[in-house]
Design a binder for these strands. Structure first.
Lengths: 108, 108
DNA sequence: AATCCTTATCGTAATATTGCAATATTAAAT
DNA sequence: ATTTAATATTGCAATATTACGATAAGGATT
């Protein structure tokens, strides 16, 4: 097969897995880290930073944007990409909840 | 192509993306949540909880284990699976760092 | 308007993932 | 020793992802 059975899972399970999947590629993690490092909206030098061709980077940016991890504002003929904290907070809160629940039980 | 260029990225970028990728499927998120819900080591009723066949679940468990998200202890002829908090903490700390860095800058 | 610069999209090849039936493995129970 | 129960592995088909060259689309610049 290869097709994921999304309709058999809860909305939250699908939401978390969609966001996590977007971060499931080192290039996309590298893009996030670059956006952090330059400490500002970046207008398209990501291609120069990564060992990937422009269409590939564009595709990764699209996936990060679809997952809500970055925002893209059009600024003239360039585009200003920057991190969308809200989505990262969803992840952080989710994992925080998991960690506190786990440590309450005493397993293995 | 289809092959990820892992050697072009840092160890941390590869580590984070590997863990995130393991959570990039709703079935694996559901497995984690089930392990949390039952509040104990579980010895193999995950197949009954998920709408997936036994070999598929087994494969998902293997990936979660490889990513370090769960531990599996052999207990007789069953296996005791439980959550490995350490790896979730790696994620939580990583995202916390991102969030604090982002809010320091004032972007878009 | 012609050109340049930046980003997106299309098409396609290579590879990876998902899912399951069939089968193997391993240990407990009879 | 045989059977039973639980989990893993193999093999394979369907689908998804990754990467990039070629090209398109858009605004800026001359």
């Amino acid at each position: 097969m290869g097709a994921t059975k999304t309709d058999h899972f809860t909305d939250q399970q699908n939401q978390i897995s969609t966001i996590a999947k977007a971060l499931g590629h080192p290039a996309r993690v590298a893009i996030i880290e670059h956006l952090l490092k330059v400490n500002a909206c970046i207008c398209g030098d990501i291609v120069n930073e990564l060992p990937l061709a422009q269409p590939t980077v564009s595709q990764h940016l699209k996936e990060l944007k679809n997952a809500g991890l970055i925002k893209g504002n059009i600024e003239g003929n360039a585009i200003c990409y920057c991190i969308d904290e809200k989505t990262f907070e969803v992840l952080k809160n989710y994992f925080s909840k998991i960690i506190t629940t786990v440590t309450k039980q005493n397993c293995c």
